[in-house]
Simulated assay, not measured.
Amino acid sequence: MIDETAFLDAATSERTLLLAEIYRRGPVWRLRAVGQGYDQGLGDLARRYGVNIED
């Protein structure tokens, strides 16, 4: 097993944080550290993935 550590320094104006993605590549499940922030909240994150959100 590989031990990798990721640190989150600090969020400034972000209201929603995407810290990791879990995905499947072939028969293997993988975890990828992302560390992306969104100022406009969860709705902004959902829209970036193609989800229609009513305000």
Rank of each mutant, 00 (worst) to 15 (best):
A10S: 03
G50S: 10
R30Y: 03
R24W: 07
T16N: 09
P27V: 11
D9F: 12
D55F: 05
Y49A: 06
I2P: 06
D39H: 07
A46P: 02
S13G: 06
I53A: 01
G37R: 05
G41L: 06
M1E: 06
A20E: 15
A11C: 11
L18N: 01
R30E: 05
Y49P: 02
L31M: 09
L31K: 12
R24S: 12
T12A: 11
D39A: 11
T12L: 08
T5D: 10
T12K: 08
V34G: 04
D44V: 05
A6P: 02
Q36Y: 13
I53V: 15
D39W: 03
D55S: 04
V28C: 06
V51Q: 07
G37S: 12
I53K: 07
D44Q: 15
L45V: 00
I22H: 09
L8V: 14
G43N: 03
D3T: 03
I2V: 14
Y23N: 02
D55P: 12
L8K: 09
I2R: 13
I2G: 10
T16D: 04
D3M: 04
Y49F: 14
D39V: 14
A10Q: 10
W29K: 13
A6E: 13
Q40C: 10
L18R: 03
W29Y: 15
A46D: 01
R48A: 08
Y23I: 00
G35M: 04
D3I: 01
G50N: 13
R32A: 10
D3K: 04
Y38K: 03
L19W: 06
F7D: 06
A33N: 14
L8P: 08
L19K: 04
Q36E: 15
L45S: 00
L8A: 13
G37Y: 02
L18E: 01
Q40V: 07
R24I: 12
R47W: 00
E14A: 01
G50I: 14
G26C: 07
V34R: 11
R15K: 15
L42E: 13
T12Y: 07
M1D: 10
D39Y: 03
G50E: 11
R24Y: 09
S13Q: 10
V34K: 08
A11I: 07
L45I: 00
Q40Y: 10
E14I: 00
E14C: 00
L42C: 11
A46H: 03
R48Y: 00
G41P: 01
G43P: 02
F7C: 02
L18M: 04
R32T: 05
Y38P: 12
T12M: 09
I22N: 14
A6R: 09
Q36K: 15
Q36F: 07
E21I: 06
V51E: 12
R48N: 05
I2C: 08
P27N: 12
A11L: 11
S13H: 06
F7M: 02
R24P: 06
M1K: 14
N52E: 11
D3H: 05
G43Y: 01
M1A: 10
R25V: 08
T12I: 14
T5Y: 10
E4K: 09
R30D: 02
F7L: 01
Q40P: 05
V51I: 15
D55W: 00
L17V: 05
R15S: 07
P27Y: 11
G41R: 09
L45P: 01
R24A: 10
D3F: 02
L8Q: 08
